[in-house]
Design a protein around this nucleic acid. Structure first.
Lengths: 110, 110
DNA sequence: TACTCATATGTGTTGTAGCTCATATGAATA
DNA sequence: TATTCATATGAGCTACAACACATATGAGTA
């Protein structure tokens, strides 16, 4: 994989690697919601939601849409949610046995 | 999606959101390689590779395997790489138009 | 135009991630 | 067992991410 691709991928991962941001994205689902709804749904402060929305927006992970006094935010498409599900299933099935404490070599401290 | 699932997902994303770590993972591909190989392939210092390998290991994203004096690291399975490809294609096709500078509302500064 | 509501943004603080240096551990070999 | 090679780990530094507060902007309405 090219260095450029890796950097873009890492950027997306980093953006999604913040629990509050991931909550915002998943709370959207496939519907567009105004910021005030996201604030209510997540319990975060308005300032903080706006802060994270900007990063998500600049990364292209979320799309704003003004409707009157409100600004609705939407996911660009549903594929992202499908990828989340894939990874989530992967985590449940293949990994995350406890806290991965015993990740070393069997019978050794590495 | 449950809060627990979101946290686990966010943890994985955060781990993969560091370019050097992502380079380590993708440089492994489906083969197991000793740390010294990873050091050569990535150009990072040994200390730093070890530092990141620990995080990857604790997250279950990489599996160590001692062979004599060497410790080989492997990906637990290939599905992870497939997910990377999915996201990478998504980035190329749907997103990342320039630097997303024009992510606001058309004809408005939001 | 003045006022209100919804959202964005600039500034400052604080915790933590990433990195390096020095050193420890553990396997192989003489 | 002494030495060497491969890798891990603890301590300390620095930069940046996440957050809050105060304030600005921009749309709707009286």
């Amino acid at each position: 994989m090219s260095g450029d691709k890796i950097n873009k991928l890492a950027t997306i991962f980093k953006i999604l690697g913040e629990p509050n941001r991931l909550r915002i994205v998943t709370s959207l689902g496939m519907e567009c919601r105004p910021v005030s709804d996201i604030v209510k749904a997540t319990g975060m402060t308005q300032t903080n939601v706006s802060f994270h929305l900007r990063l998500l927006r600049e990364a292209g992970l979320v799309r704003p849409e003004r409707r009157g006094a409100f600004i609705y935010y939407c996911l660009p498409d549903g594929e992202l949610l499908e990828i989340f599900d894939l990874l989530s299933v992967w985590i449940d099935l293949k990994r995350w046995h406890g806290e991965q404490e015993e990740a070393g070599l069997p019978g050794s401290k590495i």
